[in-house]
């Protein structure tokens, strides 16, 4: 796991401790916000996160043994609140637009340096259910499109092949969000969250296009070998921080 994830994890732990302390000092009820507090719920949110993706496909195992590390940014807008039976408060549903990117390096045959990078823009929905005044359970689903690039370079000669292709992306996740308030009745909140999810992408066909090859009209007609498809599907773990207002 990357250092950024550990930092985010640490921030989340700190916020949790802070929220617990605020609750002990007479903050909002531990059993849920008071009636009518929905109006004080934030409407907008902006979050940054760091993520790791455990790649589950054999094609990526050929290129690397590492996780795909990255990060992203999202903007969300609260749309509605749905009543939930039981002791819980309303379920807050938001629309979310996000951008995320990641990359991973690896070595094959003790000879080839591989680099796989990807980015995606997604739109989706997020639902949060308060379980404590400062703690919410959240779920997310999104669809999007992006681009994946694969580069394979020989260590000795420096020669490299590179291919890229557009991909469709679907992702989902569930997690916990810590949203402590700084001031009673204020919509402004910090958000620290952790999410376990799964991301699936359409596979990317990789062909051996030389990185340094001149324009086709200047070169001998070429045929590029097909290496196979790269599939970036995998379980993800995200740690994020942001603000809601």
């Amino acid at each position: 796991m990357r250092a950024s994830s550990l930092v985010a994890l640490g921030l989340a732990a700190g916020a949790l401790a802070h929220a617990s302390a605020a609750s002990a000092d007479g903050g909002p009820s531990d059993t849920g916000p008071a009636a009518g507090a929905v109006d004080a719920e934030p409407r907008w949110g902006v979050r940054l996160w760091s993520s790791e993706r455990w790649l589950g496909d054999a094609s990526m195992a050929a290129l690397t043994t590492d996780t795909l590390g990255g990060g992203g940014v999202a903007v969300e807008r609260r749309l509605l609140a749905l009543p939930v039976p039981g002791p819980f408060d309303d379920l807050a549903v938001s629309a979310e637009l996000s951008f995320d990117a990641g990359s991973v390096d690896g070595t094959t045959f003790q000879q080839l340096d591989n680099h796989v990078s990807t980015w995606a823009i997604s739109a989706g929905a997020r639902a949060r259910l308060p379980v404590l005044s400062w703690l919410q359970v959240q779920g997310r689903a999104a669809l999007g499109a992006g681009r994946t690039t694969v580069r394979i370079a020989d260590q000795m000669t420096g020669g490299a092949i590179e291919d890229r292709a557009a991909t469709a992306v679907a992702s989902s996740g569930v997690g916990l969000a810590v949203m402590p308030t700084l001031r009673r009745g204020s919509r402004f909140r910090f958000v620290l969250d952790a999410e376990l999810g799964y991301q699936t992408t359409t596979s990317t066909g990789v062909r051996a296009y030389p990185e340094d090859r001149p324009a086709p009209e200047l070169t001998i007609p070429a045929s590029y070998a097909t290496l196979g498809d790269v599939d970036l599907d995998g379980w993800t773990l995200r740690f994020g921080a942001g603000v809601a207002f």
């Binding site: 062909r207 051996a208 296009y209 070429a222 590029y224 070998a225 196979g228």
Partner: peptide, 11 residues
């Protein structure tokens, strides 16, 4: 020109 044929099908 044939390019990358020694990696063909590697993935």
């Amino acid at each position: 020109v044939l390019s990358g044929f020694l990696l063909a099908g590697m993935l």
